[in-house]
């Protein structure tokens, strides 16, 4: 009887063990190896790659930019995703299914396609600049391609559906009568929002922020297309080390640092949330 669950999950567990846990462990080991242009990967065991990354301002800048972009993306997603979730929650069912399709549907469209759309919109001769110049609002194109701001804008588009979904799910779990109850007790609509709705949406906001942050910190396609070589982030740097410079050990070390820092932020966030909200969040 007790072996049945293991028997059932055995095939999946085998695949995950062989093709996920082992490769991750191998990558971890790889990050301690060294690289020579002529000899390739040399199986040494040293912290040299980590020392190189941590001792170089160039990499600090890349990590700093990556986390700044992720933080800004998360903040904007929360700022516009929470009200949108609330609007969605209040829409009549017919409108709701249409708006859900518009808001969440893009999740099912390739990030490459969506980023291409932003490249067309943001370019110096792109849709936005052309329109602004035609209307005489600006004289010279406003540079948005190859900037962190452009990347943030596109990343918000890519990830805001996750925020809306998380908050909306939290709103659906709450008892709809709580708002009426607060109203019957004399609360104004702003008070109802602040004291009743927002606290109940909080678990969704917090989990949504976590999802958006971790995905934005490791996003690849959008910064690669909109940032090019000028605005590098950690994921594109790893890509270059692996497929252009071919210094796999250094790339592995950068990737491990990304993994560790993202995990650290997530754990700290969870700890903070638990301490701040305790058992109020289920």
């Amino acid at each position: 009887m007790t072996s049945r669950p293991w028997l059932l999950s055995g095939p999946a567990l085998t695949l995950f063990g062989v093709l996920l846990l082992v490769p991750l462990a191998m990558t971890f080991v790889l990050s301690f190896n060294s690289f020579d242009f002529y000899e390739g990967i040399i199986p040494t065991a040293s912290f040299a790659n980590y020392a190189e990354v941590l001792g170089d301002g160039y990499f600090w800048e890349i990590f700093g930019r990556t986390f700044a972009i992720a933080a800004a993306t998360t903040a904007i997603c929360a700022l516009i995703g929470v009200p949108q979730a609330l609007i969605l929650y209040r829409l009549s069912p017919a409108w709701r299914s249409l708006v859900v399709l518009i808001v969440i549907g893009p999740l099912l469209i390739s990030v490459v396609v969506r980023t291409l759309g932003w490249a067309i919109l943001l370019g110096n001769r792109g849709v936005i600049n052309t329109a602004l110049m035609d209307w005489g609002l600006i004289e010279r194109p406003f540079r948005m391609m190859y900037t962190s701001g452009g990347i943030v804008l596109a990343l918000v588009h890519v990830f805001v559906p996750f925020m809306v979904l998380a908050v909306w799910a939290a709103l659906q779990r709450k008892d709809p009568a709580t708002e009426a109850a607060a109203e019957s007790l004399g609360a104004s609509s702003f008070t109802i929002f602040r004291r009743i709705v927002l606290p109940q949406a909080m678990p969704g906001i917090l989990s949504g922020s976590l999802i958006v942050f971790s995905m934005a910190a490791s996003a690849f396609a959008t910064p690669a297309i909109l940032g090019g070589r000028r605005v590098k982030v950690v994921a594109t740097t790893v890509y270059d080390e692996f497929l252009n410079t071919l210094n796999w050990p250094l790339g592995a070390a950068i990737a491990m640092l990304l993994l560790i820092s993202v995990m650290a932020v997530m754990l700290a966030w969870n700890r903070l949330v638990e301490r701040r909200f305790g058992e109020g969040l289920q």
Binding site: T2, P5, W6, S9, A12, L13, F16, L19, L20, L21, V22, P23, L24, M26, T27, L30, S214, A217, S218, F220, V234, A235, V238, Y239, F242, W248, G251, A252, A255, M256, L258, L259, V262, M263, M266
Partner: peptide, 29 residues
């Protein structure tokens, strides 16, 4: 059963690990 939560965490872990890390891990393997 014992280990149930760990099992679930393993199966959901590809969502937690940055995709670029997964990419190089698969490449290496």
């Amino acid at each position: 059963f014992r280990g149930r939560d760990a099992l679930q965490a393993i199966f959901l872990s590809p969502l937690m690990v940055p995709t670029v890390v997964l990419g190089i891990a698969f490449l290496r393997f």
